[in-house]
Nucleic acid binder design. Structure first.
Lengths: 228, 228
DNA sequence: ACGTTTGCGTTCATACTGTTCACGCCGTGC
DNA sequence: GCACGGCGTGAACAGTATGAACGCAAACGT
């Protein structure tokens, strides 16, 4: 279970964020703070109690200072909590400062519930890929863990993709019981293997499908796509 | 031009890193530091001179303290420099702490020159995508910028190996209590002995597994693989 | 020392992947 | 009305991850 603290001065937004966190499997909202000072007190108390907070949903505009200043104070105090910035700050300078301050995700307000949910799921996967302890890791594993923190925008489709085709590909995947190869999806959706693959890869990127190899008798293994 | 400071106690490695940085277009190595204290002094001096360092290549094992401690002190002092960790620390706990401390890349030593180069290029792209003065920025642009920092290097795995298969082979080895023969690993992972051996050998090469012969019966000894 | 036994390591055919490029289509400007 | 540029699609092709076959290496038994 990943313990989350919501830091947000607007009570309505704070409640909404807390609700979204509770709804995400594996996450638990252990409290909300209205200000930087309150957040620091909360984190300190949890740490002395031996149950440190793992993740912060942090609004950057707080009544008693900037959210990034809270980040810095937090790091200086030795808190290891990860931070997802949830803010309406739309300027690039703030984004850059957030990155250097160690913010793992940056979500612009207003956002859809699914958008936050996607980020929380990604974060959970990142945690899972780093949860094994006491073992030597390779560069590939480190890269994979970092890649989990990367999120694609789900609201706008990338160039070369259309809603209609995406819908039919997603529908095929939804109907299928097990995993389906790109070629099979293509046939079922009435498009070529290449096009089907394009959309399936997009679904994987946005976390709505997974890809796993199916080893045959001989030859390169077939990639099977399955909805999550 | 992106100003880089190399923080590394080994003079040979420091020179090599500085050389690699100079060779990357758009980057300039403005100095090297042998210790955390020296690095802090250097950053402070550059900042007062009005030419703050933009990026650190940071070794985590320093003579006067851990590199991540330097990160925290740096943030507390308000330095906004980004950090690429270049280290031989192969444990997941350190990786996690590095992420929460605001490390943008994590490169394991020893590394190929091309590997560092790839990361520098990606960092340059990240900078470029955030350098526009245009104020209003959308979620998609933020995501793209983050993605530049977190895209896994495709060249980390040798030709002929896939992350999915590597993961399942590594998982089998992790679950096993004692040593396992290539054939046994293959059966458990759902691949052939040949494929299992390929990945096991890779794990041995990268120091994540060891290989030891099992004597006792008639015939050629069986090679048992075990995680480290 | 030599045969026997057992599994290793290499080669190569194979099947699927992933990329590149040309085509057709829709919308826009002149 | 016609040229044009951008965009979504698929055919062709090179690339690549896999396993079967097979020769060989390394141990034990006599």
């Amino acid at each position: 279970m990943i313990d989350v603290l919501v830091v947000e001065d607007d009570p309505v937004a704070a409640d909404a964020h807390a609700l979204y966190v509770e709804r995400a499997p594996g996450f638990r909202c252990v409290g909300t703070a209205r200000s930087a000072a309150e957040a620091l007190r909360f984190l300190e108390r949890r740490r002395t109690e031996g149950a440190p907070v793992a993740l912060l949903l942090l609004d950057l505009y707080l009544p008693d200072g900037h959210g990034l200043e809270l980040c810095r104070r937090l790091r200086a105090a030795g808190h290891g909590a990860d931070i997802i910035a949830v803010t309406s700050a739309r300027d690039l300078a703030t984004v850059r400062q957030a990155v250097s301050a160690g913010v793992v995700q940056y979500l612009l307000k207003p956002f859809a519930a699914a958008s936050l949910r996607g980020r929380l799921d990604r974060y959970a996967r990142y945690r899972a890929s780093l949860s094994r302890d006491g073992e030597a890791v390779g560069q590939d594993e480190v890269d994979r863990a970092f890649a989990e923190l990367r999120t694609a925008d789900t609201s706008t489709l990338p160039k070369g993709l259309t809603t209609a085709t995406l819908e039919s590909v997603a529908a095929v995947l939804r109907e299928a019981t097990g995993g389906l190869a790109a070629a099979a999806v293509g046939t079922a959706a009435g498009v070529s293997r290449i096009t089907a693959r394009r959309y399936l890869e997009y679904l994987v990127e946005t976390g709505r499908a997974v890809r796993e190899p199916q080893y045959g008798q001989v030859g390169r293994p077939e990639l099977c796509y399955r909805r999550t």
